[in-house]
Amino acid sequence: MNDIKQRRGAGTALIASGGIFFTAEFIAAAAWTNPPYSYTHHFISNLGVHGPLTAFGQFMYSPLATVMNTGFFLFGLAALTGVVMLRGLPGRWRWAMVATAVLLAVGGMLVGLFPGSDDNGTTDYHGLGALMAFVPGNVLSILIGRAHQLLGISPRLGRALVVFGILGLVSLVGFETVLVSDAGVLIGLFERGIIYPFLIGFIIVGAALRRRRP
């Protein structure tokens, strides 16, 4: 019975990870109305900058920046909680996943604590946090997918999680390419291509863990 509760708890935490991020993003973006926030043009981090100000070639004005920064801070912690609660993992798998989830959690916390506004001398911390969230989040998706048999989830879902992680890492390359070029074309879309896949994967695998019968 305790194993069942822990597995369901892990599933709930993983669902919460994606749910927290998407909810915070939606609320903060909906409050940004003048001019409207663009999911394809604006950086995600702009939602955590109250402003109004212009930085990195973009206008930033997020009335509910606190909501987004809270989401940044909490989503990684929720993912870490879910990973710690996973059952059936041998030592090497557990340590690899927990270490990766710790990096994700710390990255999310740095992004939330140090908004990327370039006006307070903390941009480097913000950039480090973003990288720590981008890469470990996708690696964690791949690890969970590869460990599908140990976790009792379907091979089909395991493959999907691996694909999600690879898609996110490929999107990271595209994001960095656009960023370095200063073109700014669809930069917000590329950034969401990094983080959305693994968050969706967390929600799906969390739901699968909650449904799984002993």
Rank of each mutant, 00 (worst) to 15 (best):
A78I: 04
L169H: 07
L157I: 11
F114K: 04
A130K: 05
D119R: 12
L186G: 04
T54I: 15
L104T: 07
I203C: 01
G108P: 09
S117R: 14
L186T: 08
V135Y: 08
F114H: 14
A10Q: 06
T70V: 13
R146H: 03
A208M: 00
G71E: 01
G91Y: 12
R211D: 00
H41D: 14
G82D: 03
N34G: 08
L128T: 06
G19Y: 09
I200M: 09
L86G: 03
P63V: 13
P136W: 11
A10T: 09
G201F: 05
V180D: 00
F26L: 15
R87F: 00
V180M: 04
L47I: 10
L80S: 02
T177V: 15
R87D: 06
P197W: 11
R92I: 08
N46V: 06
M1C: 02
S45Q: 12
I194T: 04
I27H: 10
R94D: 07
I166D: 03
I204A: 13
V67K: 05
M132S: 11
F134R: 05
G112W: 07
T40P: 01
G91V: 07
M60D: 04
G145M: 06
V139R: 05
T40V: 15
R159H: 01
L80R: 00
F26A: 15
A31D: 08
V135M: 07
V173A: 13
L74T: 08
P155Q: 09
I44Q: 01
A29L: 14
G165M: 00
R210K: 09
L157G: 02
A30L: 15
R92F: 10
G107L: 06
T23D: 06
T54V: 15
F164V: 04
G76P: 04
R92D: 12
D118H: 14
G137R: 11
F190M: 09
F164W: 03
R94H: 10
T54Q: 13
L161Y: 01
S117H: 13
G91P: 01
G174P: 08
S45W: 10
T33A: 14
